[in-house]
Design a protein around this nucleic acid. Sequence first.
DNA 1: ACGACATTATACGCGCTGTCAAATGAATTT
DNA 2: AAATTCATTTGACAGCGCGTATAATGTCGT
Lengths: 210, 210
Amino acid sequence: MTPRPYNPHQRQQAVDAGRERVLGAAREVLRLDDVASFSLDAVAKRAGVTRMTLYNQFGSRAGLLGELFDTLIERDAFSKMPSVFAQKDIGAAFDAFVGILGKFYSDNRAVMISLSGVAGTDPDLAEAMRSRHERRRIGIEGIIRKMGTKLAPSVAASELVTTLDTLLNFATFNAIAGPDRAPSAVVPHMRRLIRGVLGLSVAKSRTRKR
Amino acid sequence: MTPRPYNPHQRQQAVDAGRERVLGAAREVLRLDDVASFSLDAVAKRAGVTRMTLYNQFGSRAGLLGELFDTLIERDAFSKMPSVFAQKDIGAAFDAFVGILGKFYSDNRAVMISLSGVAGTDPDLAEAMRSRHERRRIGIEGIIRKMGTKLAPSVAASELVTTLDTLLNFATFNAIAGPDRAPSAVVPHMRRLIRGVLGLSVAKSRTRKR
DNA sequence: ACGACATTATACGCGCTGTCAAATGAATTT
DNA sequence: AAATTCATTTGACAGCGCGTATAATGTCGT
């Protein structure tokens, strides 16, 4: 009975490696096949693992997808936030933010589409995604608090953050891009739109020299 | 063998009545219960009908949801378009359009959420929805062509319609409303935002008294 | 009464999620 | 080397939802 001390060194490494293989497989299934054919069975097969392992590691389908979204957005987007805060003015900061998000949405478009779709029918995942979107909103609030001293936004100040957050979510990028264009192609357009909402002179977007 | 003449008068009426009962039941199931618990079984039970009848009438789950969307948006939104074109200026026209859409989205929020979710995983329904969205875009183009003579929009003219169309879709209303507020509460905010995009003086929105 | 047609009743096959119990195997400690 | 811990595997099962097939029932039209 008395449990023994047990320090898994190499053991934990193998487990973590397995986790990453599974997450990679999940990403590929979402990227290659269409949304409907995403299943834990397909992921497990592609990862060379049993379906039970997925439950051991992630608990459920929603858990797996939630963690997949986490790793992607952490690696490709939020880790680059410091460069946003390093900008000179708030216009440049949002330009940078839009660039990062646009590239992230573009690189992971198929995955994001699937994720949104599944979240639409899976309350658990919907909740998981909501808490993650929180981070984007917090980022926006941070930019405004730090750099948005004298703004004259075109919407009520109390709605400014919500408006920007909505414009910057994947659904908006994807809708503006349409079925053909990549979300990253929306970036210049989105920058103008956001400068407009912030009340910055749009003509000022000659960020070239000055 | 030789098929006989057969004129279903009263017969067809009964069938149509059945269809409406089924569509009404589908709407209620989507409105009352959560998304995940929508099933053809639940709809059939609520309509007092067998699941087979649904397949006879609508062919499939996607067919049923597509027709449901049709009847709702035709009755609650598009049938009211004439009042939009009756407005004096383009600002008032979009105010009216936003009002109609906001009310429609609010009245049918749960239904729209489910519909979007299912469309995310069902290519058939996705295509059916796309053609419906076409009508909204056409409405926007009509308003601009008819009333938007001297505009100075805050986005590129070539992107104006796309931008407005994106702002006016359900996803945007729903996202701005958040989990608690009704989409109809977003209407005033959305009106300001759209006036801003159109390049109209936002201060002019003193449509109340003042 | 007879034909046409919608609806019912019933029963499948299929795929997916989630759970359970017992066995396997590798890393770690004694 | 032997014992222990723990993830993984194996195999099976229950539940649910969609879609299909077939024969029976009912109802309207001629």
